[in-house]
């Protein structure tokens, strides 16, 4: 095995055994086989990042030619900090990501333990249900959640009303709209993270549990002193992916709230899309987009360092 299933980190490619020395023809084939992927990724991912930076230093309506750009230097970035709308978006995005992570960690571990440990029927059905939510189009299932969250006649209010809880505003109140969207997000994604946790659990050597049992540790003790500490790296990785997914949330915002009520669900990706495509302010939008990129790189780097430490 050259693959570390635990977190999906491939073994260093250099370690793979190479019986035949590199032949001159290999170089040609490498170029031929790599060029389609490199062309697409180069032109449509690498070049656009550079273009984002370039555009962010200009004033430009994106519907005219690039020649119509006016140099603004760092003005767009300076403008962001005095822009209450951007600050609100940034705050909402950070809050959204934090809430998603805070809910995802315990839930994915609990579900992972449930799916991994007991040998009982129903596990396959649960896995299927958890993953079905993950593959359905976010746009489609967000519309369903709009109906679930509907005030009074919606099923959530009906169920809660039966036990005497009324008046939760869900998506229509600025106090609850963001957390309602977070709940939907976690609901849709949790099956994926659970599978990662189960993969992490299978990596813990069985002998460790044997030893723990011999030492008289019960299930609870085994979980807290053995399972959870051994899951550290997996969970760091889960958090990394959860942050990447949550930081770019767009579809449910567009479908369910359009940033409202009162800007309480206005997140960066939604603001960026609207600033560029509806207000035609490509320079400002690009400054926001690159700020989002830097934020993501910073969080990602911090988590990578944390993951290395746990090795």
């Amino acid at each position: 095995m050259t693959t570390d299933v635990h977190t999906g980190t491939p073994a260093a490619p250099g370690r793979t055994r190479r019986p035949a020395p590199a032949r001159p023809s290999e170089r040609r084939w490498a170029a031929i086989f790599l060029s389609p992927a490199m062309l697409v990724i180069g032109i449509f991912m690498v070049v656009p990042i550079l273009l984002t930076v370039w555009i962010s230093l200009h004033e430009w309506s994106m519907f005219t030619s690039l020649g119509d750009m006016t140099w603004r230097g760092l003005d767009n970035y300076a403008g962001l900090w005095s822009d209450a709308g951007f600050r609100n978006s940034l705050r909402n995005t950070v809050l959204y990501v934090l809430l998603v992570v805070v809910l995802t960690i315990p839930l994915s571990v609990l579900l992972g333990l449930l799916l991994y440990f007991p040998t009982m029927r129903g596990k396959a059905a649960i896995r299927t249900a958890l993953f079905a939510t993950y593959v359905v189009p976010t746009v489609a299932i967000a519309m369903v959640w709009g109906a679930l969250y509907a005030p009074t006649y919606g099923p959530f209010d009906q169920i809660l009303g039966a036990v005497g809880i009324t008046g939760i505003g869900w998506l229509s109140s600025p106090d609850t709209a963001l957390i309602s969207l977070v709940v939907f997000h976690v609901w849709q994604m949790i099956g994926y993270y659970t599978v990662l946790v189960v993969a992490g659990l299978t990596q813990i050597p069985g002998e460790l549990y044997e030893a723990a049992r011999v030492d008289g540790a019960g299930f609870w003790r085994q979980t807290t002193s053995l399972t959870l500490p051994m899951l550290g790296r997996t969970m760091t990785f889960v958090v990394l992916i959860a942050v990447v997914n949550a930081i770019q949330v767009f579809d449910p915002i567009y479908i369910l709230t359009q940033g409202g009520p009162a800007g309480s669900t206005e997140v960066l990706s939604f603001t960026i899309q609207r600033t560029a495509f509806e207000y035609g302010l490509a320079g400002q939008a690009s400054a926001m987009a690159f700020s989002l990129f830097l934020l993501m790189v910073a969080v990602g780097a911090a988590l990578m360092v944390a993951m290395r430490r746990r090795r």
Binding site: M45, V47, T52, I55, V244, I272, Q273, A282, A289, F290
Partner: peptide, 9 residues
């Protein structure tokens, strides 16, 4: 790389 970062270019 989130698509939103490069949407404009």
């Amino acid at each position: 790389l989130p698509p939103i970062v490069t949407l404009v270019p």
